[in-house]
Design a protein around this nucleic acid. Structure first.
Lengths: 117, 117
DNA sequence: TCATCGTACAACCAATCGGTTGTAGGTTGT
DNA sequence: ACAACCTACAACCGATTGGTTGTACGATGA
């Protein structure tokens, strides 16, 4: 369970770690686009864009829907939020550190025995 | 300027796209740790951990401070927040799409001329 | 029916990644 | 002075990445 979470986090951050994929994600969050329509926007082969879309899809950031011979892709905002919540978790860890520091500073400065570990 | 932003986003997401680096980041957000102390926590060579720390540092997620012969690393919560704000921007794009859909649904259904490119 | 479009995927390639070992330099304590 | 410690970095290696071209297949429209 912990590994699957890490796998998912790996996939999400990796999918976001490429500017072309981030740009594709922006477009499909703004509205549905076929893979061809997306490919037309970039100075690279159709296959390259199709692979980027597949990476986003595997990470769960993008969902495809068939419409005739086209695949319409749209962004999944829930996945974006799940990444944001991972960052919030990190920030909470930092807050805990600050809280510990504040506690130390506010405790009796003459005390030399209120620490642990 | 747009390229530098993208470079920075690439570096940030790439730094986060590895579970060992995310774990290191959690530790250094919770408090300062020397590179050796960090390396002792993982089942890999010191050099491997040192490289992970360097990746986090280059991305700006981690700051090092010299103390004697040790390098004390601590996480930079501002960088974490900057990543979170990128995700918020993505969510805003999605909100715009929803707003546009709502607008369409609430406009006169008989109208066939209230769209734009 | 058949040419065309939209898509998926395989095979390949250079570059990068995540790991290793080895070397070297600065700091510390005796 | 010197041994031990902490760190940085180079060189190397197998795996993965981001790109290419080529092929194949289902859906569409004349």
């Amino acid at each position: 369970m912990v590994t699957e979470d890490a796998d998912r986090a790996d996939a999400l951050f990796h999918a976001l770690a490429d500017r072309t994929r981030r740009d594709i994600l922006r477009r499909v969050l703004a509205g549905e686009h076929s893979v061809s329509a997306l490919a037309a926007k970039y100075d690279m082969s159709f296959a390259a864009v199709q692979k980027h879309v597949a990476v986003l899809e595997r990470a769960g950031l993008l969902i495809k829907r068939r419409s005739g011979r086209e695949q319409l892709a749209s962004g999944d905002v829930a996945a974006v939020r799940s990444v944001a919540s991972m960052l919030t978790e990190l920030e909470q860890i930092w807050r805990g550190r600050i809280a510990r520091i504040d506690l130390l500073l506010s405790s009796d400065p003459d005390s030399d025995s209120d620490q642990e570990d």
